[in-house]
């Protein structure tokens, strides 16, 4: 058996909604502890994150994360990668914290008691052991974000895909979440429109209108920022998507 290609690899990955190609033939080789993808609103960032997480089926091309076909092989996919959505309301499935935490572990095939123990261990590791009985409804916005992170990290994925997880958070909450993310132990693939989120990331891709415009190191962030300031001076809010 050949060794699977490490990291994330896509070949000719496309995603079409009707005639419009939201993601248009992307070839990527991504690996490393911190990978960033930067792009404007509407550049296809959310679609890209959902393709890489196996939540959408590509219209064309292939996607492998650590050798796993994330759309077809869901069992291997959920053991390989987790995703944090922008809005935790869209991610929380259950009424209590413990149910939310154990769900993914049960899906990995763990027995009920084992899943419960692992969930409690993760809660303790994050210093939130007292949360287990809490209602997910009653959590603050920042707490909901943290719960989503804990529920995903309890499954011990090798990759964590972040789809603009900091949008709308205040500075202290954001700092605390960043701290938890830095120490979570998974490789991060962070997708954002804000260069500040990706400061210090070693590998950056610039996504523009469904295609990769540039890849490289931190210098890509600088190019992106220059371009954004130029575009900000114009008025392209008037353009409707075709």
């Amino acid at each position: 058996m050949t060794q699977p290609i490490p990291g994330i690899q896509t070949i000719g990955m496309s995603y079409a909604i009707g005639p419009r190609r939201v993601i248009d033939g992307i070839d990527l080789r991504l690996d490393g502890p911190r990978v960033g993808i930067i792009g404007r609103n509407g550049s296809g960032k959310s679609t890209l994150s959902r393709l890489l997480a196996g939540l959408l089926q590509p219209s064309d091309g292939t996607i492998r994360v650590e050798g796993v076909d994330v759309w077809d092989d869901r069992r291997a996919a959920i053991a390989t990668l987790g995703i944090l959505f922008q809005n935790p309301e869209h991610q929380i499935i259950f009424p209590t914290v413990l149910e939310e935490m154990t769900f993914g572990l049960r899906q990995l095939g763990r027995a009920k008691s084992e899943a419960k123990d692992a969930a409690l261990a993760t809660l303790a590791q994050f210093g939130k052991a007292h949360w287990h009985d809490a209602s997910t409804e009653a959590l603050s916005q920042g707490q909901k974000h943290l719960l989503c992170l804990m529920a995903v990290m309890a499954m011990r994925p090798r990759w964590l895909i972040l789809d603009e997880p900091f949008a709308g958070l205040d500075i202290p909450t954001r700092m605390q979440l960043v701290r938890h993310l830095e120490s979570c132990g998974a490789k991060l693939l962070h997708i954002s429109h804000d260069p500040r989120d990706l400061a210090g990331y070693g590998h950056i891709c610039w996504l523009d209108q469904g295609r990769i415009r540039a890849t490289g190191g931190p210098e890509v962030l600088a190019q992106f920022e220059t371009q954004m300031l130029a575009e900000g001076a114009r008025d392209d809010l008037a353009d409707l998507a075709g």
Binding site: L55, G82, I83, H90, G104, L108
Partner: peptide, 12 residues
Amino acid sequence: DHLAEALRARGG
């Protein structure tokens, strides 16, 4: 729609 996605993201 969001719930279906969240379910799928963690194993359906």
